[in-house]
């Protein structure tokens, strides 16, 4: 073979989407519409269960972005879950409506993540993972020392209590749904952009990515900030859905464990993986709710099995076999025949 085959530049055609996307995207849009309509027809038990699911989905999507694309395996994302919850509480004391507070909590967490990343990014690999956990603990200790925020025993969010319960549940639900859509669509757009190309390269080989001009640290930092924002919103949602916050539970490492379970089961490095993983995890959690912490044992076993035998998780296996992609971020060249 020689290098003589030269394609005239004008004939280059690059496709980003494929048929499964053109079918899948409207279906997903329809699903969101139906979900948005749900509070008008369903009992609040249904919507509040879904809120719990949405919170998990947000967290998983953010962790997937972090670990699956930027290669930042963090076990300290509970730092932002906790800070997000407390940000909503603190802003509500200042008179900010808590639903609005959830969105602002995302911003607050992104801002806090800037100096945090300067510290955390000095560590690599395993050390980064452990370091993020330590940082989360440090933030918990700071919150525990604040009497205004309820110290070690936590506090209730009172400003939402005056709302009618149905209205409050609906408001929480819509806020959660908006955040889910924002996180999933946001990750998709981010990964489809030029930055996404860089992140995929960084995931595959950091040294080589640097050698072709990618500012690796900057790319990672952007993802870290986005992920902090998403987890902050999830934390804020936890507060408005339970109306109560305790530092030990919002800053618990279990949140990171959930994120890891979900993403490993669903498929790391696939946006769809977080979706599929959340459904499986949530179903297991609901089905085994009566067996106490046994469900964690089972979920752990499923995650180990997935990590050992199902590389790329459920979605990875499905996508490899069928080529289906709901969120295509790749580039395919059409060769003129």
């Amino acid at each position: 073979m020689t290098a003589a085959v030269t394609t005239a530049p004008a004939t280059v055609r690059v496709r980003r989407s494929q048929r499964s996307t053109r079918v899948g995207a409207p279906l997903l849009g329809l699903a969101v519409l139906v979900l948005a309509f749900l509070p008008f027809v369903a009992y609040t038990t249904v919507t509040s269960t879904l809120v719990t699911f949405f919170i998990l989905l947000i967290m998983a999507t953010m962790w997937n972005l972090l670990a699956g694309f930027a290669g930042l395996v963090s076990v300290g994302q509970q730092a932002y879950v906790g800070l997000g919850a407390y940000a909503v509480l603190w802003m509500s004391d200042l008179g900010v409506q808590p639903f609005l507070g959830v969105f602002l909590a995302a911003v607050v967490c992104a801002v806090i993540a800037i100096p945090t990343s300067l510290l955390a990014f000095r560590l690599r690999g395993d050390y980064f993972a452990v370091g993020t956990w330590v940082i989360a603990e440090a933030y918990r200790l700071v919150v525990v020392r604040s009497d205004a925020l309820g110290g070690g025993s936590g506090r209730s969010l009172t400003t939402l209590s005056e709302l009618d319960q149905t209205l409050r549940e609906a408001g929480t639900y819509w806020t959660a749904l908006t955040m889910v859509v924002a996180c999933v669509v946001g990750s998709y757009l981010l990964l489809r952009s030029r930055l996404g190309l860089a992140l995929t390269a960084v995931r595959d080989n950091e040294v080589a990515a640097r050698s072709v001009g990618v500012d690796v640290t900057r790319a990672k930092r952007i993802v870290y900030l986005v992920s902090a924002a998403g987890c902050g919103a999830a934390g804020g949602l936890l507060l408005v859905s339970t109306l109560n916050v305790r530092p030990d539970s919002v800053f618990s490492v279990q949140w990171s464990a959930y994120m890891i379970f979900i993403v490993v089961i669903g498929g790391i490095g696939h946006i769809e993986g977080a979706l599929v993983g959340s459904v499986v995890f949530f179903a297991l959690q609901q089905a085994l709710a009566d067996y106490g912490s046994w469900y964690l044992v089972l979920v752990g076993l499923v995650a180990i099995a997935a990590a050992l035998w199902l590389r790329g998780g459920l979605w990875g296996a499905l996508s490899r076999r069928t080529g289906i992609r709901l969120f295509p971020i790749g580039y395919r060249v059409d060769r003129p025949s």
């Binding site: 690059v14 030029r194 190309l197 860089a198 995929t200 390269a201 995931r203 595959d204 080989n205 040294v207 080589a208 990515a209 072709v212 001009g213 990618v214 490095g269 790749g330 580039y331 395919r332 060249v333």
Partner: peptide, 21 residues
């Protein structure tokens, strides 16, 4: 050191978008 999970085209595209700007 290829970007293993990217296509050949994407490998070069990263370089073109970033290195060549």
């Amino acid at each position: 050191r290829p970007f293993e999970d990217m296509t050949v085209f994407e490998n070069v595209l990263v370089a073109a978008r970033y290195g060549a700007g």
